[in-house]
Design a protein around this nucleic acid. Structure first.
Lengths: 175, 175
DNA sequence: ACCTGAACACCGTTCAAGT
DNA sequence: ACCTGAACACCGTTCAAGT
């Protein structure tokens, strides 16, 4: 005990490790503080309250989404992006629903979005449609990934469903 | 105190009222028990554990979705169904994300789904496509409603986004 | 400015006991 | 069979105090 120089990013690091290893339920002010060898109250100055801890997790979650190589064809970039988001959902099923609870305006959230914008522009969409289509795609992918990771799909074949959806989206983008 | 003849549905009723009036955070074993004038431990025999309480809320949430008149044209039925789901999300923003966490296999979940099936059949889809399209639509609507109610869309115009999505879906269904 | 110690008002759940 | 009482092992957060 008695540490000094605690920083926000150090706290969020510890929070992320705890969540990744022992699940969201294991993330408490007390457990995070213990991991950092400080008292729970030491956290408040740096992260506000527990919601601040969760906001940090949302940032990290966005940062986990792999950004596909810009040299690849746009279709492949979109497919890889969607696949990456599903993979994040499967790896962090309990954290993933947090993405619905905050506007995706942080820098970490911007990178996947800009990647999608660029791909949709290359696909030939008008600038207005690019923004709308990105929201449609991200909403669908988020809903799909959350359904899959959360168990809403039950025992059914998510892969076949995903292929069907991808086919229709492909049709829209190349109409 | 000292009540007898406690039933599951009575417990879920009290849970729903509490959640609707004071939010999901106010739903605790203790607060539900207090509302029913029993001790918290009396609930366990009837609902299992706290997850059982939440499962009850998911049922009620499905039951809140208004079922459109079967005599209406299929397009209108789908539009009304989607609008009804969004309305439920807006009315119960904190409860709504619970829908992602359980397979939608309860009787209450079946009614909206059967309504969508019937409309999609009338739209002329093959039986296999009816099932897949329903999942696509429900996933999108759920993701959209959760984004809107949870705040992921931030200050942007959800209505314009919804209209854009509806237009594309319309295009798919009548391709 | 930054961290601690003690306290407050809560949680879900188990277990033995009562009727 | 059904409910209670007491207890256990936790929570987030406030507030005054220390350095």
């Amino acid at each position: 005990m008695g540490r000094r120089g605690l920083t926000r990013s150090e706290i969020i690091d510890a929070t992320w490790d705890l969540a990744a290893q022992r699940g969201l339920a294991a993330v408490t002010m007390r457990s995070v503080a213990e991991q950092l060898d400080v008292t729970p109250m030491a956290l408040y100055r740096h992260i506000g309250d527990k919601q601040g801890l969760l906001d940090g997790l949302v940032e990290r979650l966005h940062g986990e989404i792999p950004i596909p190589d810009a040299a690849l064809p746009w279709r492949e970039r979109l497919t890889l992006l969607a696949g990456g988001i599903r993979a994040v959902a499967r790896k962090h099923p309990d954290l993933f629903p947090l993405l619905f609870h905050r506007p995706a305006v942080t820098p970490a959230a911007q990178r996947p979005r800009e990647t999608a914008y660029a791909a949709l522009r290359e696909a030939g969409l008008a600038e207005d449609d690019v923004v709308r289509a990105e929201r449609l795609l991200s909403t669908f992918i988020l809903g799909f990934a959350a359904s899959e990771a959360g168990g809403r799909f039950g025992r059914l074949d998510a892969e076949a469903e995903y292929a069907y959806a991808a086919g229709l989206i492909e049709m829209i983008l190349t109409k």
